[in-house]
């Protein structure tokens, strides 16, 4: 079975000349389908840069990134947006919901860009909200929801397109203990139902939910703990 994510000699440099910052210096990583991986590392180690590239939000300066067997390096911006839409569900630390827009409309958003019809869109968005336990909050706006609820809306949005991978950048970083537990529980259930999950964290308890932990040090993978 081919891996969902295959990264070879990945490099990312910000700026140029003397002031250049090398965020990634030849990183290798393979993630199999159905895996649950935690990426850990000190701040500035390059873990967020890695996740942004995996989510096709940023492009690498060098190296190869195969997503579901597809070489993303050959894609232009238009094809990358299609990839983000179909293959990737991204959960941010700061939720990133569209303001002044209901939870339902936020979850429907990726389906709008995927060209799904209104009725089917509603049905799938409601199912996703139900999955994260927010069936009764569909018409609330982000400012009417707690942090934990907002993050659950964001997770519903990430999984509504049935993506190949769910990427989460410190999803519990802004949440209290109870909300964190709920969010992690949802991610566990997602993984249990066969979804591939990659998340960034610096908390060991969070990493404990994953099957394995990848440590990133100075833009390279330092070691894999199973």
């Amino acid at each position: 079975m081919s891996p969902v994510i295959e990264v070879r000699d990945l490099r990312k440099t910000y700026g140029s000349g003397d002031t250049a910052v090398h965020a990634l210096r030849g990183l290798d990583l393979t993630v199999q389908k159905g895996e649950y991986i935690a990426i850990m590392g000190a701040s500035g180690s390059g873990k967020s840069t890695l996740l942004n590239i995996l989510g096709c939000l940023d492009v690498p300066s060098g190296g190869k990134y195969l997503l579901d067997g597809i070489d993303t390096g050959e894609f232009d911006e238009e094809q990358l947006s299609l990839l983000r839409n179909r293959k990737i569900g991204f959960v941010f630390q700061s939720f990133n919901l569209v303001p002044r827009t209901t939870a339902l409309a936020n979850v429907e958003l990726p389906l709008v860009y995927a060209g799904v019809r209104r009725a089917q869109r509603r049905e799938r968005a409601l199912a996703a909200l139900d999955l994260v336990g927010l069936a009764d909050r569909t018409h609330h706006r982000p400012n009417e929801l707690s942090g934990g609820q907002q993050q659950r809306v964001a997770i519903a949005r990430a999984l509504v397109t049935s993506p190949a991978i769910v990427l989460a950048d410190e999803p519990t970083g802004n949440l209290d203990t109870d909300s964190s537990r709920e969010v992690l529980g949802i991610l566990d259930r997602l993984n249990a139902s066969g979804r591939t999950v990659v998340l960034i964290t610096h908390e060991d308890e969070v990493a404990a939910h994953a099957m394995r932990t990848v440590r990133v040090v100075d833009g390279r993978v330092a070691g894999v703990l199973v």
Partner: peptide, 16 residues
Amino acid sequence: IREIGIRKAVGAPRSS
């Protein structure tokens, strides 16, 4: 701009 970023992150193409 953040809203535009969110839209692009969930797959909005440039044209939309």
